Simulated assay, not measured.
Amino acid sequence: MPDETRKRPTQADRSLRTRSALLEAAARGLSRYGYGNLVLEQVAKEAGYTRGALYHQFKDKQDLTQAVAEWVQETWDQEVGHRVEQESDPVAALLTLARGHAVFCRRDIARVAIALRLEFSGQDHPVGRSVEEGYEALITLCTLLIEAGREAESIPPGPPARAVALAFVGALEGTVIALAGHVEHDALLAARTVVGVLGLDPLAVSLP
């Protein structure tokens, strides 16, 4: 007999799956081509749905892209940020962030934030504002962790913490993008990269 306790997917469940698939496909498309060259029909096709299904979820390309920016931030918080918060040591937290970000970007969405920041730089556009908000949240997190590490004397003094945080994120993003497709090395090399930015002695830092 079939398991009567197993519930059939509801319309809400199916809608959520559709939305998630479209968001991830759009994130890959934005990462590869940017906003201006994103073709909604191709996004729908890659996700396994029709263009009509896409327009049922999102009213236009701007609406979809803003949703992607929010989805990337929320997913990053769940998969990376949550693990960072569990680390009590600032250095361990920053290295966990670097490794976790490398793993997160294996989905081929590493260029989303960079592509959109460049495309909307200097423009007062809703998409640009959404991306900048997520970027600023990451910079703020790294700044606070660097300041905490300096207070604990586990991170050496140097340039202002925010400047180091900007270099940390820039170096991490560049490394992850350059290593796309090299899964066996990306997390380790991402961690090694940020160790240098933080001014740490690589021989004194554990990098499994």
Rank of each mutant, 00 (worst) to 15 (best):
M1E: 11
M1F: 03
M1N: 10
P2Y: 08
D3S: 11
D3C: 04
D3T: 09
R6Q: 09
K7R: 15
Q11W: 07
A12H: 09
A12L: 13
A12K: 14
D13M: 11
L16I: 09
S20K: 12
L22H: 09
L23H: 07
A25F: 04
R28T: 09
R28G: 11
L30V: 03
S31Q: 06
Y33F: 13
G34F: 02
Y35F: 15
Y35R: 08
G36E: 14
N37H: 13
N37C: 08
Q42W: 12
V43Q: 11
A47E: 03
G48M: 05
G48S: 08
T50V: 13
T50K: 14
T50M: 13
G52S: 15
Y55W: 11
Y55C: 08
Q57K: 12
K59N: 10
D60V: 07
K61S: 10
D63M: 01
L64H: 05
Q66H: 05
A67Y: 07
A69F: 01
W71H: 15
W71M: 11
Q73G: 02
E74L: 12
T75R: 12
T75C: 03
W76G: 01
D77R: 12
D77A: 14
D77G: 05
Q78Y: 12
E79R: 15
H82C: 11
R83E: 15
E85K: 13
S88F: 11
D89N: 15
P90A: 01
T96D: 13
A98E: 08
A98N: 04
A98H: 01
R99Y: 04
A102M: 09
A102F: 08
V103L: 07
F104H: 02
F104W: 01
C105W: 00
R107F: 07
R107Q: 13
R107G: 13
R107S: 14
A110C: 07
A110D: 05
A113V: 12
F120R: 00
Q123T: 10
H125W: 04
P126M: 03
P126W: 00
V127E: 00
G128M: 01
S130A: 15
V131F: 10
E132T: 14
E132N: 13
E133T: 12
G134L: 05
C142T: 10
T143G: 07
I146Q: 05
I146L: 06
A148P: 05
R150G: 09
E151S: 12
E151G: 04
E151R: 14
A152Y: 03
A152H: 04
S154T: 15
I155P: 02
P157A: 13
G158E: 08
P159C: 06
A161S: 15
R162W: 01
V164R: 06
V164H: 05
L166H: 03
L166G: 02
A167G: 02
V169L: 14
A171F: 02
L172W: 05
G174I: 00
T175D: 00
L179P: 00
A180C: 09
G181Q: 08
H182A: 10
H182P: 00
E184I: 08
L188C: 05
L188E: 03
A191W: 03
V194K: 06
G196E: 04
L198Q: 07
D201F: 06
S206N: 12
L207K: 07
